[in-house]
Design a protein around this nucleic acid. Structure first.
Lengths: 199, 199
DNA sequence: CATTACATGTAAAAGGTTACATGATTCG
DNA sequence: CGAATCATGTAACCTTTTACATGTAATG
């Protein structure tokens, strides 16, 4: 599901202009999807060209003029069909975890800064989604509640794991320690085979 | 951290050819990073051009000839520096969660299939990383153990949450139920404002 | 008066995925 | 003997990110 499809989905719930769409993405999907103006505006233009949405100019009383998009019957049908057709991916790319994998190469201060920042972000996310969750009444769509609950649960566990295990990252492995002691730096390298179970 | 930097990192642990690098990514980083040949081979070429790695041809006894890459002193320094310079991102893009947000629009069968498949994937991932973790001895780098433990913990919680809460997705919200009863389909739409707390 | 929020776009660049092209060897 | 594994690469394509360009209005 690309930004285009997600916009269509959001428009299936409520009319909006591009700017609002971005705000809604941030509010609801913060923890698992992001979209910038650079992808939203072109996406809306393509949707309109395909007849899946229509736009009407709305004079912003006070604010700037807006272009409000409304989904068409064809758009609704298209979205529903794409939900049934696509194979939903779930992709994580974490430079944070990649970095920690090489924790041996980081000095203590840097390591602590990075971990602290990630922790803050996770706690912020956790409380933000918890807030969203609270505002959803019993009559809110099941999906919205499920997704919010999922986000809270995951953020909490991630933060807890990091807090409970971060101390392990400071126990430098004996194999690399010698470098500090002016050793020739290459002689001590013992290539561990971590290839793992599968291939 | 792009594929280029990650390759450099892997080469800081052990010499390898492009093919091996991909296998190692899959084995160790499966749950938070992916890289195809289409990004690894060009990355290695660029690293070599920049003098951060060197390659020597290795006659594959039996197998095809390989190009084995070894990190240079400059490469080691570059990698260490980039670990200290970069701002580590953590990006999740989940079409799965996006889809569940719109669970109202899915028929029961489709919903169950999608959820079951995600669950299987999570359980596979969980046991795979747990396997990797078991093979890491006490002398393995702290980062490798931390990252594996993190992966197991998260995969477990994600799967558990889904199993415990999936039933909620089948309770269709009353606001959308009328569609089944041949209602005009648009009249009943009550646009809930889910904009959320922040902006 | 300055900054933030509202509002819409474009263009270039970066990056990754997919498909293609090729070939040896091993395993069942 | 056919399939899977090992092995290297290229090129087109798709998407997203970033930077740019512009302007109003509310807020502090």
């Amino acid at each position: 599901m690309d930004v285009k499809t997600l916009c269509l989905g959001l428009l299936s719930l409520e009319d909006a202009c591009g700017y609002e769409l971005k705000k809604r993405c941030e509010a609801r999907f913060q923890h698992f999807f992001s979209a910038g103006y650079g992808s939203i505006y072109p996406a809306l233009a393509e949707l309109a060209e395909a007849g899946l949405v229509e736009d009407r100019a709305a004079a912003g009383d006070g604010r700037a003029d807006r272009k409000v998009y409304r989904i068409t019957a064809a758009g609704r049908e298209h979205f529903r069909r794409s939900l049934h057709t696509m194979t939903p991916q779930h992709k994580l790319r974490s430079e944070f975890l990649a970095m920690l994998y090489f924790a041996d190469l980081l000095d203590t201060e840097r390591l602590n800064t990075v971990v602290d920042e990630r922790l803050q972000e996770l706690r912020r996310t956790e409380s933000h989604i918890a807030g969203v969750e609270r505002e959803l009444g019993r009559d809110a769509p099941a999906g919205a509640r499920f997704v919010a609950g999922f986000g809270v649960a995951l953020a909490r566990v991630a933060a807890d794991y990091i807090e409970e295990h971060r101390h392990l990252l400071l126990e430098r492995s004996p194999a690399r320690q010698p470098e500090k002691a002016a050793a020739p730096a290459r002689a001590a390298r013992r290539p561990l085979d971590l290839t793992g179970s599968l291939p």
